[in-house]
Design a protein around this nucleic acid. Structure first.
Length: 268
DNA sequence: AGTACCACCTGACGGC
DNA sequence: TGCCGTCAGGTGGTAC
């Protein structure tokens, strides 16, 4: 479920562990994760080079090689990074392993293989080609208002639409809507200015706090503030605000968790 | 421009 | 114990 906060922490992890180290060898564990490159092409692009900087846009991670080319990583539902030395510590679902000359390894693990790895000469063009919207943390309040202005459909769909705003998925859209006290099916284009502003504030606060509390690790559920919905995404859970029962519904083709008494649908 | 549905993929879980 | 259906959800495709 890597969304913007998780991917941001993977980016920082990559920065801390894997930059400026010579790559000796690349092992593609499963070619299904390759996006537009062959095993051979990816290996020859990386081998002998170093990663020298990283960049994130929405859920997409990029790492630049010292020849200017960029590695692209998308985590799908089940992806994460692991840096390790002892091969006994290799993750079970390692799909792409980078071996450094310092005898350490960086694994791109991906159980369900919805993610992918590839190469691009230019992240900006990659973003353009995928028609990704602005990164959810890059956008200011005014631009956010403009995006929602005239938008049809449900607010949850809008938040999760990567071509509108990049980075938010099912889990964090629920969290943001919970904080803004909006029902997932509220009409996106009919929000009052005050509601759009509180949604914007909730979006920023949720994403930044999630990064801060270790999104992308197992501990995040325990480390998130007590007022959050995140630890209560299960059957029969209680709303941390009103102690009412958390409910689920299908919205935007996903299972949305929400509190029916804190998040009322207008007109119902 | 929306929605609805399917496919991809693996593993966990519940029912029987 | 084991078999089977269902579900999880990011993306991308198609049909309406």
């Amino acid at each position: 479920m890597p969304e913007l906060p998780d991917v941001e922490n993977y980016r920082r992890y990559l920065d801390a562990k894997a930059l400026h180290k010579k790559i000796d060898h690349v092992e593609v564990g499963n070619t299904k994760i390759l996006r537009g490159v062959s095993r051979k092409k990816l290996a020859s692009a990386l081998e002998g080079r170093k990663l020298e900087k990283s960049r994130r846009h929405g859920k997409q991670l990029f790492a630049r090689l010292d020849n200017g080319e960029w590695l692209t990583l998308h985590f799908g539902m089940t992806g994460y990074l692991a840096y390790f030395e002892d091969m006994d510590d290799e993750p079970r679902h390692d799909r792409l392993r980078v071996d450094f000359s310092n005898r350490h390894h960086l694994a791109f693990a991906n159980q369900r293989m919805f993610g992918g790895a590839g190469l691009t000469p230019d992240p900006d063009r990659f973003i353009e080609r995928k028609k990704l919207g602005p990164d959810a943390l890059d956008i200011d309040r005014k631009a956010f208002r403009e995006l929602l202005n005239g938008r049809g459909g449900q607010i949850k769909s809008a938040l999760m639409d990567q071509q509108l705003i990049a980075g938010i998925g099912n889990v964090y859209s629920d969290e943001i809507l919970f904080h803004a006290r909006l029902h997932p099916k509220t009409a996106a284009g009919k929000l009052q200015a005050k509601q759009v502003d509180s949604l914007y504030r909730a979006m920023r606060r949720v994403l930044e706090t999630a990064i801060d509390r270790g999104a992308g690790t197992e501990e995040v559920t325990r480390r998130v503030p007590k007022s959050w919905l995140l630890p209560h995404r299960k059957d029969g859970a209680r709303c941390p605000r009103c102690a009412g029962k958390v409910a689920t519904m299908k919205a935007a083709g996903r299972t949305a968790y929400y509190c029916p008494s804190c998040q009322k649908q207008p007109g119902k």
